[in-house]
Design a protein around this nucleic acid. Structure first.
Lengths: 138, 138
DNA sequence: GGATTTTAGTTGATACTACAAGTAACTATG
DNA sequence: CATAGTTACTTGTAGTATCAACTAAAATCC
């Protein structure tokens, strides 16, 4: 429980002191930056960041106001909205990435042996799958 | 990251559907219920729940309004405030505990082998200590 | 081919959290 | 013994998250 309490807060504050992004904001931008055309449909982006569509929508609205993302209606499906990373958003990601990498390295990687780090991945995966099972069929 | 996103939310919602407590609320009440005289100084309670004093103060205010906790000034140090679990608060913990236990069992314990569960404890401990080091001396 | 359901996303109210500033009591120091 | 500093906690504010309700487009079903 201490881990769940402290680690998100720590990830956030290390990032926010230096840049002005939430850790979640960063993940949204980073995911877009890696996508083809720097574009992802909202649903796809929500899945990759494990966020609700509602939460994502609010956050994208904010990031859009800051000029890092734009929205456009999908050509194939008029219900769908694509989030597109702007040039300015791309530059933001590039500028922020080193800080993010270092905070993760400091907080997690350096604290563990390589084997423990691997184990953590396996364990987290199992728990996450468990949660997804349970929330899929209530 | 998915773990950090999903697990707290999952812990919360399983508990909130059935009872009307946040997972953090529960931890506050549970810690008090295990303390001698069902009483803890705010600072001590904050440390046990790994929360800031500010956060705790807000939450205790709410729990106090619901009649589960009362505050009293410490006899030894007039700066210090003790949080005391009321009878009604005690009953709330007793009523809630089974749900809490089962949700943790479902979400975490059942997903892992005993050895993995142990490893998770070790790994979480190392990361938490790391965070505490880093936030102690900035 | 029109009615119903599902999917995709948005929005507004409410509630929680974090940060910063403030108060009051205690301690140490010259 | 006054005063400077620390400790313990509270409170206001502003930003985020969550939930429920809503709109609109697409798919499905007689």
């Amino acid at each position: 429980m201490a881990l769940l309490n402290l680690l998100p807060a720590a990830c956030d504050s290390e990032l926010r002191r230096t840049t002005d992004l939430t850790h979640f904001d960063y993940r949204v931008l980073a995911n877009l930056s890696e996508a083809p055309e720097r574009t992802l449909q909202m649903s796809a982006l929500a899945e990759r960041t494990t966020a609700s569509l509602s939460r994502l929508s609010h956050v994208v609205t904010r990031l859009e106001r800051q000029g890092w993302i734009t929205r456009e209606v999908s050509a194939h499906d008029a219900r769908a909205t694509n989030a597109v990373l702007t040039q300015s958003g791309w530059e933001k990601v590039v500028a922020t990435a080193p800080f993010h990498v270092q905070s993760v390295r400091n907080l997690v990687l350096d604290a563990l042996t390589p084997s423990q780090f691997h184990q953590l991945g396996v364990i987290a995966g199992k728990i996450v799958r468990r949660i997804e099972e349970r929330t899929a069929t209530p």
